[in-house]
Nucleic acid binder design. Structure first.
Length: 697
DNA sequence: GAGCACTGC
């Protein structure tokens, strides 16, 4: 540490190439090429821990089909390994080195860093591809960063990924669905392309289980020695990180209320510890808002005026402006406290954090294949998560982590790693993707972690009912192939397909785009009542989907004006995204032969198209229910219209919902009125046998 | 009259 940064001066550019969490200092980023010369960049590269392993890594990649690199935060593996490979000739002869990331932001940030280090223009020799953005040049690009989802899509046109010589799958420990599917498929590709090299890079992975997955040497024992090719047994290499030491403290006794415990822990840190920001991990918006309020109270009773704390919430539902507040520098004499969801564990990196308070819980998605319902449940985190959270305290100097659970609990109760996403979600999208890649035996697919047979069977049932697969579980033609081509949930894609015949594709493309955005309403600002009133200006008696069409129309009519959005409680950023997604879907729709046509306000055909995709979510109002209770036609599950819906308290007799949110009750979000006769029209195989009973008026 | 961890094509 011979370099010191003078307070008040511009901070040096910081770029986290490990967790995918990146903090941009835009001014530093744009001026960096002029302020840092090539030599200093080269020196920076050599100071990274991974530099010592350069030759070992190149040797392993040369001699092994698969290499597993375990590198802790700050090791430099993501930015350096692709460059080492390039320098060693792996990109010669027109070949390309690929490096995948789970997140778009990480792809962009790492690519621009590497381009800068190599002194080339981003998009030439070094490029990246994410949805909506392809900054590569097929002639020039030798190192390509991309999201793992994009690489999966690329396999649809080039199943063997033949242009790549080395594929590095980064952040593999996160075990996202796309990463797992990608790993399964890459293992298959390796058999056909022995010259392909894989690098699995991760922070805390159970390297041995990953190595076992890629180890095909046993089956080939005896022939291995005679072959001149690479060893099929994976190599494992560990690279140390560059983070500072973090001292971990545990609760002496189990904590009855983690919210209060978190607040009092923050207060005692504030009162007893030297300066440094505090990051608190809680589970969700509710918890966080409550903790902010409680902490604000406590800190005001603390003697000092305003308590010396700047307290900020952080979760994805916040507007961009509110999220950006956590990055603003802490005022002199103040201490910043950020109370956050898991978003600060991987997606966002906060500099200046010295203390972490870890509740030990997070919200996790679980899927019930019997009811086909996904739930968000507060559950204990894994040891890997706990370590990751603690590490957030050691980015700028040695830090401290306070765990609101006992050491015994950590050792005995927390699982080593989380449950892979593939075992916690509906498999409908994954199955259709594999089918489209020609993997017909889904049950026999070699997954890094197998999903449950129940979930696989349920996915096949759903796809069959949508007409995506036939009696032999093969993709139908053309419908199945068309639906696989659209990058959305198969139910939405089916809706788009149906809109072609019904002559309302323009409207359905709008609805599909809105449904794929979190929310188009500006919810965090102003009172709830005002938002509700604003919504009523767009309200359609037919339901939320048609209401979305009215908002979209208004947005176009005012020339996409931010002022109009503000006035109408519409989220401007979200609407811009709707336009973007819609544009992409429109191009995809045209490519697969869908006629673009508007139904000019005929909402009946629009609702029929929605029914074609979501018939399984049909509900009927209980005849004598005063509380607005509905029952699903399939399964007779008790459900209620969510208060955010335009049809809340209207309670039409027959409706279809887009999704369920389960809390104390099952709430239907985004509902639309239908005529029950459309159900048998849309899905005769699904509803015919139930007609006598369920359809009585 | 109540609530949406986080990604991604």
């Amino acid at each position: 540490m011979s370099l010191f940064w003078k307070p008040g001066a511009e901070k040096p550019q910081l770029l986290d190439d490990e967790e995918g969490g990146v903090l941009f200092f835009s001014s530093a980023l744009s001026s960096s090429s002029s302020s840092y010369g090539y030599a200093s960049l080269e020196k920076q590269r050599q100071r990274l821990p991974v530099y010592k392993y350069r030759n070992s890594i190149l040797y392993l990649v040369e001699t092994h089909s698969t290499s597993i690199v375990v590198g802790e935060t700050g090791s430099g593996k993501t930015t350096q390994i692709p460059q080492y490979l390039k320098e060693a000739g792996w990109a010669d002869g027109g070949r390309v080195i690929a490096c995948t990331q789970p997140r778009r932001l990480a792809v962009q940030a790492v690519a621009s860093r590497v381009a800068e280090e190599m002194g080339v223009k981003l998009g030439d020799e070094v490029g990246y591809t994410i949805r909506f953005e392809d900054l590569t040049n097929s002639e020039l690009t030798r190192i390509k960063f991309l999201t793992d989802g994009v690489l999966l899509r690329e396999m649809m046109t080039d199943p063997l990924l033949s242009k790549y010589s080395v594929i590095m799958v980064d952040e593999a420990h996160e075990r996202s669905i796309s990463t797992d599917i990608l790993l399964g498929l890459l293992k298959k590709i390796q058999r056909r392309r022995p010259e392909l090299r894989l690098i699995i890079a991760s922070a805390t992975i159970e390297a041995k289980s990953m190595a076992a997955f890629f180890d095909t040497s046993k089956k080939r024992r005896g022939s291995d020695d005679k072959q001149h090719g690479p060893k099929t047994e994976p190599a494992i290499l560990s690279v140390e990180g560059r983070g500072f030491n973090v001292q971990v403290f545990y609760a002496e006794e189990p904590v009855p209320d983690y919210l209060r415990a978190a607040v009092s822990t923050v207060m005692s840190i504030h009162n007893q510890e030297p300066p440094g920001d505090i990051l608190v991990f809680l589970t969700g918006q509710d918890d966080i808002d409550a903790a902010v309020e409680l902490l604000t109270e406590e800190s005001q009773n603390n003697g000092k005026p305003s308590g010396g704390l700047t307290i900020l919430p952080l979760y994805s539902g916040l507007s961009r402006a509110d999220q950006d507040l956590v990055f603003s520098p802490t005022p002199r004499g103040k201490r910043k406290v950020v109370i956050s969801t898991n978003i600060a564990e991987t997606s966002l990196t906060l500099e200046g954090v010295v203390y972490v308070v870890d509740s030990g819980f997070s919200k996790q998605r679980f899927y019930n294949p019997i009811t086909d319902v996904e739930n968000l449940i507060v559950a204990p985190i894994s040891k890997a998560s706990a370590r990751q959270r603690a590490g957030r305290a050691g980015r700028v100097r040695p830090g401290k982590c306070y765990r609101l659970y006992t050491e015994e609990y950590y050792v005995n109760e927390l699982s080593t790693e989380g449950i892979p996403e593939i075992q916690r979600t509906s498999l409908v999208s994954s199955v259709i993707q594999l089918k489209a890649l020609g993997i017909d035996n889904i049950l026999g697919f070699d997954w890094p972690a197998s999903p449950s047979p129940e979930a696989m069977i349920r996915a096949l049932e759903v796809l069959y009912s949508l007409g995506v697969i036939d009696d032999d579980a093969k993709l139908t033609s053309p419908a199945g192939f068309q639906i696989a081509e659209i990058p959305l949930e198969p139910m939405i894609s089916k809706m788009i397909l149906a809109s072609d015949e019904l002559g309302c594709s323009e409207e359905i493309l709008t609805i599909a785009s809105v449904l794929s955005i979190q929310s188009i309403w500006a919810s965090s600002r102003g009172s709830q009542k005002e938002l509700d009133e604003a919504k009523m200006r767009f309200a359609a008696a037919e339901g939320d989907h048609v209401t979305f069409l009215n908002v979209y129309k208004g947005f176009l009519k005012c020339n996409k004006s931010p002022t109009w959005c503000h006035k109408n409680f519409v989220n401007y950023q979200a609407m811009k995204k709707v336009i973007e997604v819609r544009g992409q879907l429109r191009r995809t729709a045209q490519r697969i032969g869908i006629n673009l046509k508007s139904c000019d306000g005929d909402t009946q055909v629009v609702r029929k198209a929605v029914t074609a995709g979501y018939f399984a979510n049909a509900c009927r109002l209980e005849a004598f229910s005063h509380s607005g209770m509905y029952k699903t036609l399939r399964g007779s599950q008790e459900v209620y219209i969510h208060p955010s819906s335009i049809l809340f308290r209207v309670n039409p007799k027959w409706i279809i919902f887009h999704s369920l949110v389960s809390t104390d009750r099952q709430y239907m979000r985004n509902v639309i009125t239908i005529d029950p006769s459309w159900l048998t029209e849309a899905a005769p195989h699904f509803y015919q046998h139930r007609q006598p009973d369920s359809f009585r008026q």
